[in-house]
Amino acid sequence: MSDSLKLSLTRRYRFSASHRLHSPHFSEEENHRLYGKCNSPYGHGHNYVVEVTITGPVDVATGMIANLADLDPFVELEVVEAFDCKYLNEELPEFRETVPTTENVVREIYRRLKKFPTARLERVRVEETTKNSFEISTES
């Protein structure tokens, strides 16, 4: 086997949460114009899907880049438990000052998962709906 190959492993997780897009930098009217329905004052929700991609050498003893028995509880704790059934604007301190657009959500999830100890985080992709997705990759 002379080819040099790169392997990555991707796992999908889910959480449901509500948010409201509203920026203190703009007037009520400007917020309404900019964010449209997403500016509705009581918030609205999505079934988010989080795709987590890790990379690194495959351990010969296990055949794995990382054991899902380690990755799953890590993502459950850092992301699913933290985000599931929450109002992102009020219940996550990171979104008190930052608008919880999915760009900012994916960035926050990436920041949390970057600490995964046994493989390199390569990419996080968040589907806000089946039509919209946002991703962030580690620069190689």
């Binding site: 086997m1 040099s4 190959l5 392997l7 999908r12 050498p57 190689s140």
Partner: peptide, 21 residues
């Protein structure tokens, strides 16, 4: 549907080469 592996050529040789033996 919730788990997949990608295999590609390692262009930049970042040490992610799988063990072959």
């Amino acid at each position: 549907p919730d788990l997949f592996a990608d295999c590609t050529s390692d262009h930049n040789g970042d040490g992610a080469t799988p063990e072959a033996g």
